[in-house]
Amino acid sequence: MIEIDPVKCVGCGACVRICPPKALTIEVNEKETILKYFIGRCIFCWMCVQTCPQKAIKTTNKFELSAVDVHELQMELVHNTVKCRVCGKPFITSKFVKEVGRRLNGGFKDDLLYVCPTCRRKLTAKKIATKVTGVE
């Protein structure tokens, strides 16, 4: 099985997108982003380990994983969800936002970081339009 380091994980969902058997799933709601790992589906291919940009997923040698209750095979990692400052929709985790900020080395300002992609596109378009036409 794999172990996800809750400190390193930022909840970006790269592992979820690559996971062939869909053992890793992500659920985003108002308050929380939940990364779910269901061992029952895992095929131990380590694709997530190779993909993880944070190196937060570790391989282990545990393989005797039978359990009486199916819920024992389910593991969850809960992150806080950030809401878009413009439209108010939940979009990514707070840690993910911080990590993006860190990697960009302050290239993005907070007002853009905390905005969801759709709104960001609109904002940028507006900015360019303002620059070109000079009209607010």
């Binding site: 997108r17 690559i18 996971c19 062939p20 058997p21 095929i43 291919c45 694709m47």
Partner: peptide, 10 residues
């Protein structure tokens, strides 16, 4: 319904 790199495992 899967992506290119997921299919080999299937």
């Amino acid at each position: 319904s899967m992506k290119y790199d997921q299919v080999p495992f299937l």
